[in-house]
Design a protein around this nucleic acid. Structure first.
Ligand SMILES: [Zn+2]
Ligand SMILES: [Zn+2]
Ligand SMILES: [Zn+2]
Ligand SMILES: [Zn+2]
Lengths: 162, 162
DNA sequence: CCGGCCTTGGTATAGTATATCGTACTCTAT
DNA sequence: ATAGAGTACGATATACTATACCAAGGCCGG
């Protein structure tokens, strides 16, 4: 396995394997509850998204699928990603055209992302204060709020220190 | 000139021509102050962005440039858009891969967008409350904030009424 | 006028996403 | 079991978005 320098630079250098396994187990659970099929392909794509542990592009997922020896094309991965987003297991980062595993799947939530320009990580927040401010602003303008894209870029704590 | 039904559905059906003229005049002023060259091409691109009066894609701008009889290619429009964003005359909407004229150019500002899924308009806000909430959340996580992408989708006031 | 810098033209290519069609699988109801 | 409906996947083609690169022309300070 390979580990980039950026990955090692992080303070919370958790057990990556457990991290992924937990995400997959939770995903299986959630899909079962919702009566959705958590197929082998979908599981593998989710695993790949979590393995990167930072936002990963659809075509990067595709390459890794091919590296498995599996036959795959763009629609293969986009379908899987669309499904995973639908179920709430994956988020799309609009400003990066990339995807990342949801840190708190299972419950509907409006999240925000802190995207480090140095190490590439994207931390998922669920700040009620931000969401309240967004809802208030929308309400002030008679806007019926449906979707939120909140992506903050800058330098994360770990990268600032070094 | 053409006007779509969606455009007409809006309550604040302002004088479009004046709207564009004002934006161009302000742009000329700002570029002069900053010692930047507001060339014919850049002016035309800004004009086209404002003409659409909702987020417009780079390739849509390109088509309109060609319709002028001008020779143009993708880099032509991307260079102009990059310049206009640099100077703060245009914003990019990440979730749409599109561009829109800045409603309050000249001063640095963090803005948010209310994007109507029905009529396609994108209203630019500058909510201090939202920005404060974002800054607070970033600070809580030791994140040094540099860029903000806040794009809310839903249904605008005009479209909700009808 | 010269030389440097910025702007633009032009071509090629990279990167991201979807349309479409056919096949295989899964589940369910007869 | 078998038929049928619905879903998921394979495969090909294409659309959409963005950048790399080099050449030519315009502007401006010397
Ligand atoms: Zn999430
Ligand atoms: Zn970092
Ligand atoms: Zn603005
Ligand atoms: Zn609307």
């Amino acid at each position: 396995m390979s580990s980039s320098a950026a990955e090692h630079s992080h303070a919370d250098h958790h057990d990556h394997g457990k991290c992924i396994a937990d995400a997959l187990a939770a995903a299986r659970e959630i899909c079962a509850q919702r009566g959705e099929r958590f197929t082998e392909l979908r599981g593998r794509v989710l695993e790949l998204v979590w393995e990167s542990h930072r936002p990963i592009g659809a075509y990067a997922v595709l390459e890794r699928l091919k590296a498995d020896g599996r036959s795959a094309a763009p629609p293969t991965v986009y379908r899987a990603l669309d499904f995973l987003m639908e179920v709430g297991l994956v988020h799309r980062i609009e400003s990066l055209n990339a995807y990342i595993g949801c840190a708190h799947p299972g419950a509907a939530h409006a999240s925000q992302f802190l995207i480090c320009k140095d190490c590439g990580t994207a931390e998922e927040l669920e700040s009620p204060a931000i969401d309240a401010a967004l809802a208030a602003a929308a309400g002030d303008h008679g806007f019926k709020l449906a979707g939120r894209v909140v992506e903050l870029s800058g330098t994360c704590k770990s990268c600032t220190g070094s």
